[in-house]
């Protein structure tokens, strides 16, 4: 039971003085090396999901708690450990243009890591590896190699980044909104490539998204964040088909499912009052952060932070509606997910 990635009570606070935002509030998570799965982290903008991705990639250090890769605290790695860590933990980013340095042709992001990480013995072997990876994501090497990023389409650029991930065979891939900026027609292809990485190459994937429909298609387990806190987590089918937390209900309800029998937008939208927002700010992490917008809000929600109640054996929700059920400690999140990955 070696953990490839482990987040232990991670909190990240941005800003200082009066303008403090906690982007992550006591979040724990664990991915096991021998059971690679696809875990979705979902939430609206500002939920802390991208902060989490950046932390896993070692671009940010937590304010408190630990992010560990193969048992080593990322924040305390030596430069040698960090080099290996970067080799084994790769990413696909949201903006398929920003990931490229406009000064260089696209070959650079494929060739450079091969050279740096000493993959491929000869130049011709490297070339073959690159060609194979490009073909796997449906690109013709002659069409894209030797070109500058601005000469390619967004879909081509994003597929090259995915091909890069195929090429490097990391042990963990952070995919931060990989399909939200590409044409709808290409999404299936990219998601399929990511699934292939997981199934065939046994790469663990942290799939970060605001789009629950794509999450539903590819992930094994899901974690829903709201303002830096976990609101619901567990079996993704149950969470999406039958949400239990009022926020998840609202989120699922706003998805325009391609099914005319399903009603859409029936949940009431609550515009939080200024007084409610003031209470939210005063409460910090000691209250339920969804209280100002919650249709089921109770007085208790303003005074106490809801723990993770077990709604089903494989699903938890941080909501007092489920008071009386078993309480799962946050640290047990890893075991919960572990059971879900086949």
């Amino acid at each position: 039971m070696d953990a490839i990635l482990e987040l232990k009570n991670v909190t990240k606070i941005f800003g200082s003085g009066h303008n403090v935002v906690s982007a992550m509030d006591d979040i724990s998570l664990r991915l096991d090396a021998d059971k690679p799965g696809i875990i979705t982290v979902a939430g609206e903008s500002g939920s802390g999901k991208t902060t989490m991705g950046n932390m896993v990639l070692g671009f940010l250090n937590p304010t408190s708690g630990k992010v560990m890769y193969k048992g080593n605290d990322i924040a305390k790695m030596s430069s040698k450990q960090r080099f290996i860590f970067h080799k084994e933990v790769q990413a696909v980013f949201q903006d398929p243009f920003a990931a490229y340095n406009p000064f260089y042709i696209v070959d650079r992001i494929l060739e450079l890591p091969l050279t740096q990480y000493k993959l491929g013995k000869s130049a011709s072997e490297k070339k073959e590896m690159i060609h194979n990876a490009l073909q796997l994501v449906g690109l013709r090497p002659a069409e894209v190699l030797g070109r500058y990023p601005h000469q390619l389409s967004g879909g081509q650029r994003q597929r090259i980044v995915v091909a890069r991930a195929l090429l490097l065979r990391p042990s963990l891939l952070v995919a931060d909104e990989p399909v939200s900026m590409v044409d709808a027609s290409l999404r299936a292809n990219l998601l399929e490539s990511i699934r292939k990485l997981n199934r065939d190459l046994r790469i663990s994937v942290l799939y970060i998204t605001h789009d629950l429909t794509t999450a539903y298609h590819i992930s094994d387990a899901i974690m829903i964040l709201y303002r830096g806190s976990v609101v619901e987590a567990g079996n993704e089918e149950k969470v999406i088909k039958n949400p239990s937390h009022p926020y998840t209900r609202l989120l699922i309800d706003s998805i325009p499912w391609p099914d005319i029998t399903m009603q859409w937008g029936k949940e009431p939208l609550i515009e939080p009052s200024d007084a409610a927002m003031q209470r939210l700010i005063m409460g910090g992490s000691q209250i339920c952060k969804f209280a100002p917008r919650c249709p089921n809000v109770m007085e208790q929600c303003w005074n106490q932070r809801p723990p993770l109640y077990r709604v089903d054996p494989d699903r938890v929700a941080a909501c007092f509606l489920y008071q009386g059920g078993d309480v799962m400690p946050g640290e047990a999140m890893g075991d919960l997910f572990d059971g879900l990955i086949a």
């Binding site: 970067h86 080799k87 933990v89 990413a91 980013f93 340095n101 890591p113």
Partner: peptide, 22 residues
């Protein structure tokens, strides 16, 4: 702050090479 700098880190470049090459 641009993402290609993050990409360069993932490509295994050290800070000096990021400054001079990226």
């Amino acid at each position: 702050e641009r993402q290609f700098v993050q990409m360069a880190k993932l490509n295994g470049l050290n800070d000096m090479r990021i400054i001079f090459e990226e």
